[in-house]
């Protein structure tokens, strides 16, 4: 028994409020990865910049010459052949046109897993039907023993996207991650499915 670790800390015995609170206070939580603050702040400000329509930077007096120059350059550019843009984020219309492909994931569990956390991460260019603005979906469920099936209605724009669907399951501190490629659309019903055990 370590001298640093009081006997009462690890040995069975009546647990008082003080000891319980000390245990709770010592519950570990990992430090965020290096650069966490810079990363989240930069991302938050960048996203907000993209969304913001109220900054009106062009209204500031000293920026008028810059705006005028940019306007002229834009005119020249358009006159020479128009604008071709590869949008990294699919437009709403693309999502509307996308056909859902049902991805079935079937696995066997040797025992019941009550209150398991299920998390689905989707690659760029794919989303779940009904959850179009998010790429990660998480919920909790009781997973019964035996064969189980998870059906994911995946929407894909622009053909099969690069990347994989990542499914993570957590239960009482244990975790398992599974990765699946999105199947190509089938010819008969416009959808597709895979079954993985």
């Amino acid at each position: 028994m370590s001298t640093k670790e009081p006997l009462s800390h690890s040995c069975p015995g009546p647990l008082g409020d003080d000891r319980l609170q000390r245990l709770l206070r010592e519950m570990p939580a990992p430090e965020p990865e290096v650069g966490f603050e810079r990363r989240v702040l930069r991302a938050a400000l960048a996203i907000r910049h993209e969304r913001s329509e109220s900054r009106m930077w062009w209204f500031r007096p000293m920026r008028w010459p810059v705006a005028a120059t940019a306007f002229c350059l834009l005119g020249l550019f358009l006159a020479k052949g128009g604008l071709r843009v590869n949008a990294p984020v699919p437009a709403l219309a693309d999502w509307e046109a996308a056909t859902p492909r049902t991805v079935h994931i079937v696995l066997d569990s040797p025992r019941q897993l009550p209150g398991a956390t299920i998390r689905v991460r989707l690659p760029a260019g794919a989303t779940l039907e009904g959850y179009r603005d998010i790429d990660t979906l998480q919920w909790q469920a009781d997973i019964p023993a035996g064969g189980n099936r998870l059906s994911l209605p995946v929407l894909v724009t622009g053909g099969t996207p690069e990347g994989i669907i990542r499914v993570e399951i957590e239960h009482e501190g244990a975790r398992k991650a599974l990765e699946f490629s999105i199947p190509p659309p089938s010819k008969d019903d416009g959808g597709a499915s895979i079954t993985t055990t």
Partner: peptide
Amino acid sequence: RRCASPIDANLSLESDDLERRAPARGND
């Protein structure tokens, strides 16, 4: 609020595949 997800939430895993997170650095 997504606990009651419309998606079929039946999913499973092999218990012996689980990655235990707890560290083990000596008896204490």
